[in-house]
Computed example of a mutant assay.
Amino acid sequence: MALEVTVYTKDACGDCRRTKSNLNQRKVPHQTVHVAEDNIELIEKLRAIAEQLGSKLAMPYVKVVNTDTGDTEEWFGHRSDLIVEHIIAKRRGSL
């Protein structure tokens, strides 16, 4: 199973740093997308995703795509529990 993990971050974001650190410690390859304060188009896109998920717009935004099936898991905020559930457990299951 191949997972593509993307972390959307912003400046001075403690939860963003914690999320990336958690992924790094667990040796999870991931891409980081910096969300600049003046990137209104991306911020509005993230706001729409948060609304669709019934969540508040709280960085980071994490998107996990199973490239084999196209299934997507996504969430806002630092969520170690979801990193384990949607990334670590799935990687272990594919070994």
Rank of each mutant, 00 (worst) to 15 (best):
M1F: 00
M1W: 00
M1Q: 02
L3I: 07
L3F: 11
E4F: 06
T6Q: 00
T6W: 00
T6R: 01
T6N: 01
V7E: 06
Y8C: 02
T9C: 03
T9D: 00
K10W: 01
K10E: 14
D11L: 02
D11Q: 03
D11C: 00
A12T: 15
A12S: 15
A12Y: 15
C13Q: 05
C16L: 06
R17I: 10
T19G: 03
T19S: 03
N22H: 06
N22V: 00
N22G: 02
N22E: 10
L23Q: 15
L23F: 13
L23D: 14
N24F: 14
N24W: 13
N24S: 14
N24V: 11
R26L: 12
R26V: 08
K27C: 04
K27Y: 13
K27M: 11
K27H: 15
V28K: 06
V28W: 08
P29R: 07
P29L: 08
H30R: 09
H30L: 07
H30A: 06
Q31K: 15
Q31D: 14
T32L: 01
T32I: 02
H34P: 03
H34L: 04
V35N: 04
V35P: 04
D38V: 02
D38C: 00
N39C: 01
N39H: 08
I40H: 10
I40G: 01
L42E: 08
E44N: 15
E44L: 09
E44Y: 11
L46Q: 03
A48Y: 03
I49V: 12
I49L: 09
A50M: 00
E51N: 10
E51T: 10
Q52W: 07
L53M: 10
G54P: 12
G54E: 11
G54Y: 12
S55G: 06
S55Y: 08
K56Q: 15
L57H: 09
M59R: 01
M59C: 04
M59L: 08
Y61F: 11
V62T: 10
V62L: 05
K63L: 00
K63W: 00
V64R: 07
V65T: 13
V65G: 12
V65D: 13
V65I: 12
N66G: 02
N66W: 05
T67S: 11
D68I: 02
T69S: 15
T69Y: 14
T69N: 13
T69K: 12
T69E: 13
G70I: 11
D71T: 10
D71V: 04
D71Q: 14
T72C: 06
T72N: 07
E74K: 15
E74V: 03
W75Q: 02
W75K: 04
F76D: 00
F76E: 01
G77A: 03
G77F: 04
R79V: 06
R79M: 09
S80E: 05
S80M: 06
D81F: 04
L82Q: 10
L82G: 09
I83H: 08
V84T: 14
V84A: 13
V84C: 06
V84W: 15
E85A: 09
E85C: 01
E85Q: 09
H86N: 13
I88N: 03
A89E: 12
A89Q: 12
A89S: 13
K90H: 15
R91M: 11
R91A: 08
R91F: 09
R92F: 07
R92V: 06
L95M: 05
L95R: 07
L95K: 05
